[in-house]
Structures are given as structure tokens and as C-alpha cells.
Simulated assay, not measured.
Amino acid sequence: MKQLKPEKTTGWRGSEELWLQAAYETLIEQGVEAVKVMELAKRLDLSRTSFYGHFENREALLQALVERWRQKNTGNLLERTQAYAETIAEALFNLFDCWLCDDLFDARLDFAIRNWALSDPELRAVLEASDQERIDAIREMFVRFGFEPDEARVRAYTVYYTQIGYISMMVDEPPEPRIRRMPIYVETFTGTHPTEAEVARFASRHGMSADFVQRRSGGQAAL
């Protein structure tokens, strides 16, 4: 277990972000049942009363965790679906950045929230609303590129549920093989082939060459 050991001065109560980060790490490692004020205080080597200088109670801390998840995961996903793209293939590559960049989308946090929601009906409702918001954003992305609404929704389901499957099954693999397959995912999800230039731009921003990601066959991206 990672221990946060802040440098302290007399009477220091930590910071709101410090307590929230400790709660986040505990949620990821042990689940919501372990997110308790006394245990967090021990983890931070601070007094229990210090917590109440930043949060009214444990419930307020838990709500802050949920808000962090909503802002980071759902917020960034929506932004990536709206990012500039000239084709649906390029738009999907923009979305795929979420699956590869922890700064954009925290898969471990998404998994922890889903586990937590199994025993919390109120959070489950929040999760379901967030899932729907994400799916709607992906659907609108397809619609922008000329897909009929019903078809766009089915394609959005396919894209989103595939990724949630990765998260729920705790698939752990190096990024390289997954990135290498992504042009084929684009073709599968959109019915179109990404261009060499689109693959090259996507590969470059993830520190790889287009030759690594694709093998050219008739001008199409392939493994």
C-alpha cells in the first residue's frame, strides 16, 4: 500500500487535495468500504480531527471522489468525441486517446466506481446516467459524419461496450499490441478504412511509428 507522508509543520491539517488523493488511492486498492476517516488519517500520519477542516463528513469525501470521476472520465470522453476531425476514422482515433492516456481517462477509477455502485443504488443511478451521456456523445459523433441515428446508436453501443468490457474484465496488456490493432478497430466500428496519414498522426502522438501500427495492404491499414 502506498503511504503518503506529507511534510508537516505544527498544527498542519493537510489539504483537501491530499485527503482526496488518499481516499482515491484507497478506493482503487481496497474498495469503498476501506475509505474511512480514521484509516486515511493513519495513512497520512495526520490526526483524525484534521480531516474535518476540509470535509464535513465521510459522505462529503465520497461525493468528492464521485465528482472527480465524473469530471475526469466522463468530461474528457465527451471532449474527445467533440474534438476536431475530418473523418469518422479520425474522430474515433481521437476517442481512442482516452483508452491509452491515464491523464484523459482513469480506467482503474472507472472500475472502482462500477464495483462501488453494485452496493449503492444512488451511485448506480449516477453511473447509469453517466454511461448514457457517454453513449449519446459517441452516437452524436457518428451522426456528425453522416450515419443515420439508429445506426449511429448501435455503433456507439459497440464502441462503448467494447471498452467497458476491457475495464470490467480487468484486461491488462501493454499498450503496443492494443495500439497496433486500433486501425482494425476503426474499420470494425465505422465500416471505413483509416488513411495512412490518419494512422500516422495517431501513432505519432502515442510515440510510435505508423509502420509499427499498420502493415500496408492495398492502401488499407491492417495487422
Rank of each mutant, 00 (worst) to 15 (best):
R13I: 00
E16D: 02
W19F: 09
T26G: 02
L27M: 10
Q30T: 11
G31P: 06
G31D: 07
V32L: 12
E33H: 11
E33G: 03
V35R: 06
V35L: 10
E39H: 14
E39K: 14
L40H: 07
K42S: 15
L44V: 11
D45L: 12
D45W: 02
L46R: 15
S50W: 08
Y52Q: 11
G53F: 11
E56P: 05
L61R: 01
Q63S: 12
A64D: 00
L65Y: 10
V66S: 02
W69P: 07
T74P: 00
N76T: 02
L77V: 03
L78S: 00
Y84L: 09
A89I: 03
A91S: 15
F93T: 03
L95N: 00
F96P: 00
F96Y: 14
A107S: 12
L109Y: 04
D110R: 11
D110M: 13
A117N: 03
L118Q: 15
D120Y: 10
E122P: 11
A125C: 06
V126D: 01
L127R: 13
E128I: 04
S130T: 14
E133V: 05
I135R: 14
D136T: 13
D136P: 02
I138F: 01
F142V: 02
R144E: 05
E148M: 08
P149V: 06
A152G: 06
R153K: 11
A156F: 09
V159T: 01
Y160A: 05
Y161C: 08
Y161T: 15
T162G: 03
T162Q: 04
I167N: 05
S168Y: 02
M170F: 07
P177A: 03
R178P: 00
R178G: 02
I179W: 10
I179V: 11
R180K: 14
R181N: 14
P183R: 09
F189L: 15
H193S: 13
P194D: 12
E198G: 06
E198Y: 10
F202N: 12
F202I: 08
A203W: 14
H206D: 06
F212Y: 15
G219H: 08
G219C: 10
L223Q: 05
